[in-house]
């Protein structure tokens, strides 16, 4: 029981990363590939949060009395996730804009049918 509890979050993050990679490697639709990239990002964010978590502790915000430094989780991964999310959003937005341009030029989203350059 506790074994699964210990591994659950790692399985979720690793699984999301692997599913995302599979989509990127195998699928041929550009929109699906972009979604796959987003899967990878989400998986990494969960991984970072898992690494910073300490069982039985609370968020590192001392706005209420009664929270002592001994019972808060690691603040650094949360700061890193904030940065990683923003970077993920930026890549996603740019990727979608380039997909729009590719579609306007080729009238298809299937990478095997876009013959201009060798994929």
């Amino acid at each position: 029981m506790s074994g699964i509890y210990n591994w659950m979050y790692y399985i979720a993050s690793g699984g999301l990363i692997l599913i995302g990679l599979y989509i990127v490697l195998v699928k041929t639709n550009l929109i699906k590939i972009v979604i796959g990239l987003n899967f990878i990002d989400t998986g990494i964010n969960i991984l970072l949060i898992c690494i910073g978590y300490v069982r039985g502790r609370t968020a590192p915000i001392f706005s209420r009395p009664g929270i002592s430094p001994a019972n808060v989780v690691d603040p650094v991964p949360q700061a890193l996730v904030l940065t990683a999310i923003v970077i993920g959003v930026a890549v996603l937005a740019l990727a979608l804009s380039i997909v729009i341009k590719v579609y306007q030029h080729n009238k298809t989203l299937n990478v095997t049918k876009i013959k201009g350059l060798k994929w």
């Binding site: 210990n6 978590y53 300490v54 069982r55 590192p60």
Partner: peptide, 14 residues
Amino acid sequence: PFGKDKINVANYYI
């Protein structure tokens, strides 16, 4: 290990 206290540098911040 998941959920163990492995805070190192961040202790300084806390």
